[in-house]
Simulated assay, not measured.
Amino acid sequence: MTEDDRPADPARSRGTLRRWAPLAIILVLTAVAFGTGWHRSLTLDSLVAHERALRAFIDSNLFGALAIYALVYVLVVALSLPGGLILTLAGGYLFGWFLGGGLTVLAATAGAILIFLVARSSLGESLAERAGPRLAALREGFAANALNYLLFLRLVPIFPFWLVNIAPALLGVSLKTYVVGTFIGIVPGTFAFAFVGAGLDGVVDAQRASFETCMADASARGLDPASACDLGLDVAALVTPGLLAALAALGVLALIPIAAKKVLRRRSAR
C-alpha cells in the first residue's frame, strides 16, 4: 500500500478543519459584505437619512438597539470592513458619548479578539514554523515589549485598525497582552470620536435643512433630487489635526518605557 492509498488520519483532518475553517468563514463573510455593497451604507449621509427611524427604534427598544449596534460593530471589525469611524461617531450621536463610547470600546475589543484568534490559529503557527532568522528576531523583539508596542499602534491613528488587529497574531503576542493593550489603547480615541459624534446635532440639523431646501428646489425645476442634492457631511472635516496630534502624543508616551529600558541597558553594558 502506497502512502497515497493510506486512509486519512481523522485527528489530523479535524485539526486541519479547526485551523482553517474559521479563516474560511471570515473570508466568505467578507466577500459577501463587499459583494452586496453592505459596507457602503456605513456613511454619515445614511445615518442622517435614517435618523428618525433609528431614534424611534431606540426610544421603544433601547437594549435591542444597543445589542444590534454592538453586533454590527463586532462584525465590521472582525471582517475588517471600512466604517469603524462612522460607527463610532454614530454611537456617540445616537446613544451619547458615554454610553456610545463605552459600548464601542467593548464591541471593538470583541471584534479585534475574534480576528486575532482566527489569524493566530490559521496563520500565526504556520508563520512561526517557516519564519527565517530576521522574522524570528522581529517576533522576539516585539514580544519583549508587546504591551507598549501595541499601545503605541492602538493610540496613534495612522495605522489601519485591521492591520493592528492581525499583526500581533503573526508576531507571537499572547492573548492576555493583546486584550489588555487593545482595550486600553482604543479607549482615548474611541471616546474622543464618540464625543465628536455626540456634538453633531447642530451640524446635522443645518445640513438637513440645506438638503431639504435643495430637494424642494430641484423638484420645482424638474431635476432629479437624488442626483442634484447631497447632504455633504464629510468625516474628514470632523477629524481635526489637534485631535490626531493628541492621540499621537499618547502613542509616543507608550514608547517611553521601551526607550528608557534600552538606555539603561546600554549604560549597564559599558
Rank of each mutant, 00 (worst) to 15 (best):
H50Y: 11
D230T: 15
Y73D: 07
L103E: 02
I158Q: 10
D234G: 14
K261L: 10
A21L: 15
T182G: 11
L42S: 04
F95T: 02
F191R: 02
I115E: 04
V28P: 00
N61I: 13
L244P: 03
A90M: 12
R52W: 06
L62A: 14
S210W: 06
F152C: 15
I68D: 10
A249Q: 00
P82D: 06
F193G: 00
S121M: 10
Y69P: 03
V105M: 07
A90V: 11
A90H: 05
G172M: 08
A128N: 13
R120L: 08
A194D: 01
K262N: 11
D9N: 15
T240H: 08
L127G: 08
L200H: 03
A90F: 01
A245N: 06
L23P: 05
G132V: 09
A70P: 04
L106W: 00
V239Y: 05
T104Q: 00
V180R: 03
L247C: 14
A209E: 10
P82Y: 11
G141E: 08
E3C: 06
D230A: 15
H39C: 10
A226V: 12
S121A: 09
F152H: 14
G172R: 03
K176M: 13
T36E: 04
G199F: 09
W38Y: 06
S210C: 10
L150C: 01
F34T: 06
P188V: 04
L103G: 10
D45H: 05
P257V: 09
G185P: 02
